[in-house]
Design a protein around this nucleic acid. Structure first.
Length: 430
RNA sequence: GGCGACGUCGCCAAGCGGUAAGGCCGAGGUCUGCAAAACCUCUAUCGCCGGUUCGACUCCGGCCGUCGCCUCCA
């Protein structure tokens, strides 16, 4: 299996640290609002990676954080006149609910920043003891120039960052790339006691702390949206690797943006569509199909017509599955006793499975995988049409076929309408 | 200004050195009481210009266009 690693800008053979096990961290939401389809692309893709790794037989531990204390949350809470932590609690619950409706399986561990303040403080203290942190009036900053490898993920040099500055420099920083590990509390803000006075964690430190608390010093896979590559992930590396002296994450995966009307769908651009609104109009499998219909490193343009296309494609796949379920019989398949037509279908099933794995092994090519499923569906339907007359008898082959389809579609999560909510989606048409 | 991505059939989208998967839509047909569903058939030479090669959509160079990161953002 090969994965494109942002760190090396190449596809690399995937070999987990510990055989048969994968430690994976996926950057979750900062909960100051509902999440939108663009966010969903990343969350969904992490879910698909996890499912595929499990399909391949790995034991996966997926950790996805919820950042529930942060500048944005405080800002939003102030705007609404609400308590910041209460706001983030509500939105984190909304996140879990919406993600569930989309068919995203909950991570094995879903840590929250506010529940890891102790670990965060310890990590900052470690950084202090290594001489890479400095304090200015209750704020603690990370000194990037103490970490020679700073910039190795994003390829940004000091000059790059300087030349691009469009924001006033914080004069207290020694280097414009330095970033806050701990922020002193302003009146009315949520705060925790610390060696530096009352305050709260900076944005990047909580991911390092939570990842290492639950997965150890070195992760196999770290995934997230492309906009996190710099500075967020770069900073995570800097913090973690200086603290432990070891590689923080071995494979970095970044998901390309979802666009809308040709530009990036983003919160700050105010051009997003909440997933909960999308779910009012489209079935979850259709949204998943749409989001997986392009390779994850290719930008994808949101368009409601594309969602409708996806819905048609999903429906045909599900029709085929339903027919198989209806016709399937009892018993074990005995390939040696197959008739020629059955043999042919059986061989096609094996081939489809082989191709599915081949394209998914190649950096999770979900778009190609959907193509494999479609081709297989057509072959099954042809078989069913040509053998209609004798399909009344028990046909264990069809059970096997259905199971195989179910497995592949299950990795992509496009056959799950039964488990979730088939009830609430479609209004009755009389 | 620095760094990077993308440009393949009407729309979406794989492929990436040996002459283009798949989806959606459309057309014709089979089936059907009608319809739906299903099935069959049909629709591309890959932004432009050069180069490398026996051979390029696939490699190299230039150009055009679109987008992104460099600042909060999945």
């Amino acid at each position: 299996m090969r994965i494109y690693n942002t760190l090396t800008r190449r596809k690399e053979e995937f070999v987990p640290l510990e055989e048969g096990k994968v430690r994976m961290y996926s950057c979750g939401p900062t909960v100051y609002d509902y999440f939108h389809i663009g966010n969903a692309r990343t969350f969904l893709f992490s879910d698909v990676i996890r499912r595929y790794l499990e399909y391949k037989g790995y034991e996966v531990t997926l950790v996805q954080n919820i950042t529930d204390i942060d500048d944005k949350i405080i800002q939003r809470a102030n705007e609404l006149g609400l308590d910041a932590l209460r706001l983030s609690k509500e939105y984190s619950e909304a996140y879990l609910m919406d993600a569930g409706k989309l068919g995203i399986r909950p991570a094995n561990i879903q840590p929250r920043a506010t529940e890891h303040i102790r670990e965060i403080i310890q990590l900052i203290q470690q950084l202090e003891s290594k001489g890479v942190a400095y304090t200015v009036n209750g704020d603690v900053f990370y000194d990037v120039n103490q970490f020679p490898e700073y910039g190795k993920l994003s390829g940004r040099t000091r000059e790059d960052v300087r030349s691009g500055e469009r924001v006033a420099i914080d004069e207290r920083k020694r280097d414009p790339r330095d970033f806050a590990l701990w922020k002193s509390a302003k009146p009315g803000e949520p705060k925790w006691d610390s060696p530096w006075g009352e305050g709260r964690p900076g944005w990047h430190i909580e991911c390092s702390a939570m990842a290492m608390t639950h997965l150890g010093k070195t992760l196999d896979i770290h995934a997230g949206g492309g906009d996190l590559e710099f500075p967020h992930h770069e900073n995570e590396i800097a913090q973690s690797e200086v603290a432990t002296g070891e590689t923080f994450a071995r494979y970095w995966i970044h998901v390309a943006f979802l666009r809308i009307n040709g530009t990036k769908m983003g919160k700050s651009d105010r051009n997003f569509i909440y997933i909960r609104d999308a779910l009012k109009q489209h079935r979850p499998e259709a949204i998943r199909y749409f989001l997986l219909s392009a390779h994850y490193r290719t930008p994808l343009d949101y368009n409601t017509d594309r969602l409708a296309d996806a819905a048609s494609a999903v429906r045909r796949l599900q029709n085929c599955r339903d027919t198989l379920a209806r016709l399937g019989g009892e018993g074990e398949i005995i390939p040696e006793e197959f008739s020629d037509v059955d043999r042919k279908l059986y061989d096609r099933m094996r081939l489809a499975q082989q191709e599915f794995e081949q394209v998914m092994d190649d950096d999770f090519n979900t778009a190609a995988a959907l193509g494999v499923l479609a081709t297989f569906r057509a072959q099954i339907n042809t078989y069913l049409a040509e053998n209609e007359s004798r399909l009344h008898e028990s046909t264990p082959l069809l059970v096997s076929i259905e199971k195989t389809m179910q497995q592949m579609a299950g990795v992509l999560g496009i056959f799950e309408e039964d488990k979730n909510q088939s009830t609430s989606t479609t209004p009755d048409i009389v």
